[in-house]
Design a protein around this nucleic acid. Structure first.
Lengths: 251, 251
DNA sequence: CGACTTGTTGATGTACATCAAGGTACGTGG
DNA sequence: CCACGTACCTTGATGTACATCAACAAGTCG
C-alpha cells in the first residue's frame, strides 16, 4: 500500500473541465463554475494500489474522481475485507470523513487515478452561498446510499452466481453511462480477489462461479476485458435492473 | 401489509417537541424551529406492519420518526427480503425517494409509530433559507451511509454468530443513545425472521446461532426483552465498536 | 549486443475434503 | 394461528493444496 503522491497544483480549471461535457452530468452556470474553481484546492494523482483515505484516520479533504477507478472498503481486525463500492469519474469521495470527522473505511485506487481536491473548511461556504450545490451534494449522498442498498441486497440474499452476474452488469452499466465501454466490451481493472471481497465470497468459489456463468455463455472475461454476451439472459438471471439514466450533478 | 392511516393534522409544534430535549440531539435556535414548524405539514401514525414507502413507488413526502421502530428493506422478485436498516426516533425517512423521485425500497413500521411529515416541495426552500438545516440533512444522509457500510461488512464478512452478536449490540447501542433501554435491558420489537432477513441468514440458522450465543452467556432474549449479559465479551467477539456519541441533528 | 535461460511473483484454474448454512419437517407454547 | 425450538439431511461455500500462465528482472552465453 503506497502513500499518495504529493498533491499537485491545479492543472485543469473547472470551467474547462472535460468531464462536465459528458451528457450524463448536469450543466453548471458561470457562478457555480467560478465557485467550484475557487473551492478546488488542487489535484491529486495516485498510482494503482494507493490509499487516499484510511480507516480510522482523520480526513481533511473532499475529493471528486476525475479519472480512473477507485474502491472503498472496510476491514475486520483479522484482515477480512469487504469492498463497499466503486468510485468512477464524477463520484464524490470523503463526504463521510469530512462530516463525521474521520473515515471509517479506506479508499484505494484500482488504476492510476486523478482526483480533484477540495478543502473541508470551505464546504460550509458552499452551503451558505450555493444551495443548488449543497443540494447536489445531498443528491450524491443519497445516490451513494442507494448503491449500497442494492449491494447489500446482493450480498445478503442473492446466490453466488446471481451476485457475480449482478455486479458485472452493475459495473458495466455505470461505466457505460460514462462512455468507458466499447459496445458490449469493457476494460475491467479488477482481480478476482476484488470481486470476491465485493461479493462476500471466497476467491476459489468466485472463480468457480465465474466459469460456470461463462460456460453458460452469459459473458466472457479474459485479460481484463469483460464482454457481455447475453445481457438479457444475464439481467433476467440476476434480477438486474439498470439505474434510470439521470442527469446527475458533479462537483 | 396495511395501508397507512390518514394523515392527521399537526398535534405537536416543533418548538415544544419533546424529542429535541434528548441530550443526543442538537439544539435548534428559534428561527430554525420556526422554519421547521412551517415545513412540517402533519403527523402520521401507523400500526405495526404498515408500509410508509413502497419499493418502486413515487414518494412525495419526507418523514422523521417521532416514536416507534421502523425498518427499511428491499425484496427480490421471488420474495427474498433483505432488511437494510432500522429507523428509530430522530431518523430521517424518504430522502432517497424525494431526491431520486421514487423509492427503491419499502419502509415498514415494526411497532406502532408516529412520524412527522414534511412536504417535498418545501425542501428547496430549506436549502435556500437555512444552510445549517441543509447541512444537517447531508449529515444524516452520510450517517445513513455509514450504517450501511457497517451492515455490509457484517453480512459480507462476518460469520453467522458474529453477525447476530454485532447486530444486537448495534441496536442496543442506538436505542441506548435515545434512552430506550433500562440498564442492560431493552425491549426489542423484532421477530427472528426480521433478524434473519437483516443478517442474510435463514430463519432456522438464525435461531440456532442465537441459542448458541445465549448458551455462552453473552445475552438473553425472551419475550421481546433483550438483556446484554456480557457486553465486553460480546463486543470483542463481534468486533463491535460503539458509534462515537455525537450531538446529532434532528429535523 | 542480443537471445536464451532461470527465478520470482501475482493472478488464475481445479481437485479434493470439510464445514457452515440452508431446507424440510414436526414439534411446542402463548 | 404465529413465533419459536430442534432434529435431520442436503448443499452451497470454504480452505488447502497444487498446477498453470504471463509479466518481469537478473543472469548467462553465443
Amino acid at each position: 500500500m503506497k502513500k499518495p503522491e504529493a498533491m499537485q497544483g491545479r492543472q485543469v480549471a473547472c470551467p474547462e473541465c472535460p468531464l462536465r461535457l459528458q451528457k450524463c452530468f448536469r450543466q453548471f452556470d458561470e457562478t457555480e463554475l467560478a465557485f467550484m474553481d475557487a473551492f478546488k484546492v488542487g489535484e491529486l494523482v495516485v498510482d494503482a494500489g494507493t490509499s487516499v483515505l484510511l480507516q480510522g484516520i482523520d480526513g481533511p479533504h473532499l475529493y471528486t474522481v476525475f479519472s480512473g477507478w477507485m474502491f472503498r472498503f472496510k476491514t475486520l481486525p483479522d484482515g477480512r475485507r469487504q469492498i463497499l463500492n466503486y468510485a468512477l469519474p464524477g463520484d464524490l469521495i470523503g463526504l463521510q470523513s469530512v462530516l463525521m470527522d474521520k473515515a471509517e473505511h479506506t479508499v484505494e485506487a484500482l488504476t492510476r487515478a486523478s482526483l480533484c481536491v477540495f478543502a473541508r473548511d470551505n464546504l460550509w461556504r458552499l452551503y451558505e452561498k450555493h444551495p443548488e450545490l449543497a443540494f447536489d451534494i445531498t443528491w450524491l449522498a443519497a445516490r451513494g446510499e442507494r448503491l449500497l442498498d442494492e449491494h447489500l441486497l446482493s450480498v445478503g440474499r442473492r446466490t453466488a452466481a446471481e451476485r457475480v452476474a449482478y455486479v458485472l452488469l452493475h459495473l458495466f452499466d455505470r461505466a457505460r453511462q460514462l462512455g468507458l465501454n466499447r459496445g458490449n466490451s469493457l476494460r475491467l481493472p479488477l482481480t478476482q480477489q476484488h470481486l470476491a471481497d465485493t461479493l462476500g465470497l471466497s476467491l476459489v468459489h468466485t472463480n468457480k462461479t465465474l466459469h460456470q456463468l461463462i460456460r453458460r455463455g452469459l459473458f466472457s472475461w479474459r485479460n481484463g476485458e469483460l464482454v457481455i454476451r447475453n445481457a438479457k439472459a444475464m439481467a433476467e438471471f440476476a434480477s438486474f435492473e439498470p439505474m434510470q439514466e439521470v442527469v446527475r450533478p458533479i462537483l
